[in-house]
Deep mutational scan, measured.
Amino acid sequence: KWTITVQGEEAIKWAIKVAEARNLDYTVHIDGDQAHITIE
């Protein structure tokens, strides 16, 4: 299990796209213009 933090709307969209493309189980916690994405 690991967490990445991305900043900015484009980076958030990209990170989610990558997680979905790899069929990963993930949760997103949005904090202002940052998102913390935890991959199970």
Rank of each mutant, 00 (worst) to 15 (best):
E9C: 12
V6T: 02
T3M: 09
A35L: 06
R22Q: 15
K17P: 01
D33N: 11
E9Y: 11
E9P: 09
L24G: 05
I12F: 07
H36A: 06
I4V: 09
K17Q: 13
E40D: 11
I39N: 00
D31T: 09
D33L: 08
V18A: 11
V28E: 01
E10R: 10
I12T: 04
V6R: 01
E9D: 10
V6N: 00
R22S: 15
G32P: 02
K13Y: 09
W14I: 06
I16Q: 04
D31W: 09
I30F: 13
E9S: 11
H29A: 10
T27C: 09
G8T: 05
D25E: 14
T27E: 09
I39G: 02
Y26D: 00
T5C: 10
I30H: 07
I39L: 10
Q7M: 13
Q7P: 02
Q7R: 13
D31R: 07
D31I: 12
N23S: 07
T5W: 08
T38H: 09
E10C: 13
R22I: 15
I16W: 02
Y26E: 00
G8D: 03
I12V: 06
L24N: 03
E9K: 09
W2V: 06
A15W: 15
I16T: 04
T3I: 12
T27W: 11
V6C: 06
A11G: 07
E10Q: 10
K17T: 10
H36Y: 13
A21P: 00
A11I: 04
I30S: 04
Q34H: 12
D25N: 14
I12G: 00
V6W: 02
D31F: 11
K1P: 08
T27S: 10
A15D: 01
D31V: 13
A35H: 04
A11K: 08
Y26M: 03
A19P: 00
V18M: 14
T3P: 01
E10W: 11
Y26L: 04
D33R: 05
D33V: 07
A11H: 06
T38G: 02
A11D: 05
K1Y: 10
I30E: 03
I12H: 01
T5G: 02
D25Q: 14
K13Q: 12
I4N: 01
Q7I: 14
T38D: 03
V18L: 13
H36E: 07
Q7A: 08
D33A: 08
E20C: 11
L24Q: 06
E10A: 12
E10F: 10
V6F: 06
A19F: 14
H29D: 09
V18H: 11
A35R: 04
K1S: 11
K17M: 14
V28G: 01
T27A: 07
I39Q: 02
V6K: 00
E40T: 15
K17N: 09
G32R: 04
A19N: 01
T5K: 06
K13P: 01
W2E: 02
A35Y: 13
Q34D: 07
A15V: 14
A15M: 10
R22A: 15
Q7F: 13
D31P: 01
A15T: 06
T3D: 03
L24C: 14
V6G: 02
A21F: 11
A35D: 01
R22K: 14
E20T: 10
K13E: 10
L24S: 05
A15C: 06
W14M: 10
